[in-house]
């Protein structure tokens, strides 16, 4: 396999992990966050520092990056998860920006705005594939467990979920921390693949991009998120000429999807064997509906 194809696959894998984190948070718990790029930055910088300054093996720095993101998300969640939709969103946004500004400011440790160079390349195709498989399995099992059902209950009606005895604060925290761990994971892999990171790589646009991918894939669908990430990462690679228009298309696509078809590509459904088997029936049903309406 050529290095280029390998690179693209690694990039898709890293993006999938980051997007899955947002998918759990936004798609399954209906918490809208602009802070995930901040958690990616924390994972990337923490793991890079562990590898280069403390000579840790890759696995330890990977776990260190995830742990750092988790700890910070615990502290931040404790402070902000009690706030309602808009307020929570703004604090995550503030957190993301603060992270970036702090990394730029702590020049002696992080290299400031110039970036952090000299990270050894340790992320290989195999590690990314294992990571993606692990990330998908964990997310799927989490969402199909009692915990996942509680998250979905919070998504549908927070007050009702509270009333039937779900500790909403605790489960929102769980969702937030898992999402941060995924972001930190993706960040650590990213740092050890590109060998050079700058704070500007993890700005507000990156957070928006993650959310946009989840919305296009369909809120509440892991397979949707995976498919959307793959397509959206491949698109600018395959069609080089549209690469400049990439973000413009994303923006328009999100507005169209959220106004016309809020379920996105795969909203609230998962791709499975039975789904594929039922596909012809569903398509027929869809057309029949259309005719009846007409």
């Amino acid at each position: 396999m050529s290095g280029y194809v390998e690179g693209v696959i690694i990039l898709i894998g890293i993006n999938i992990i980051a997007v899955l984190g947002v998918s759990i948070l936004t798609g399954f718990t209906r918490l809208f966050s602009f802070g995930n790029a901040g958690f990616m930055a924390i994972g990337a910088y923490a793991s890079a520092i562990l590898t280069t300054k403390f000579n840790m093996p890759f696995l330890i720095s990977l776990l260190g990056g995830m742990l750092m993101a988790a700890l910070i998300s615990l502290a931040l969640g404790k402070l902000t998860l009690g706030l309602k939709g808009d307020y929570f969103l703004i604090t995550t946004l503030g957190f993301g920006e603060c992270t970036r500004v702090l990394i730029e400011f702590l020049d002696p440790i992080t290299g400031g705005a110039r970036g952090y160079a000299g990270i050894p390349q340790k992320t290989t195709l195999l590690i990314v594939l294992i990571s993606v498989a692990l990330a998908i399995t964990v997310a799927r099992n989490l969402l199909n467990s009692k915990y996942g059902r509680n998250l979905k209950a919070i998504r549908e009606q927070e007050i009702a979920a509270d009333a039937v005895g779900i500790d909403t604060a605790r489960f929102k925290q769980l969702s937030f921390t898992v999402s941060a761990i995924y972001a930190g994971w993706a960040g650590a892999l990213f740092a050890h693949y590109y060998m050079f990171i700058t704070p500007a790589m993890f700005n507000l646009d990156k957070s928006s991009e993650l959310t946009i991918t989840v919305v296009i894939g369909g809120l509440g669908s892991l397979t949707g998120s995976v498919i959307a990430t793959t397509v959206l990462t491949l698109l600018p690679e395959v069609l080089r000429s549209v690469a400049n228009y990439r973000m413009l298309f994303y923006g328009i696509a999100v507005v169209l999807i959220i106004t016309l078809r809020p379920n996105g590509l795969m909203g609230y459904k998962e791709l499975s064997a039975s789904w594929i088997k039922n596909l012809p029936i569903q398509v027929r049903r869809m057309f029949r509906c259309r005719k009846e309406v007409a």
């Binding site: 928006s208 946009i212 919305v215 994303y250 999100v254 507005v255």
Partner: peptide
């Protein structure tokens, strides 16, 4: 989300 999309 729509507002974010418009902004982008």
């Amino acid at each position: 989300i729509a507002a974010m999309g418009l902004s982008v």
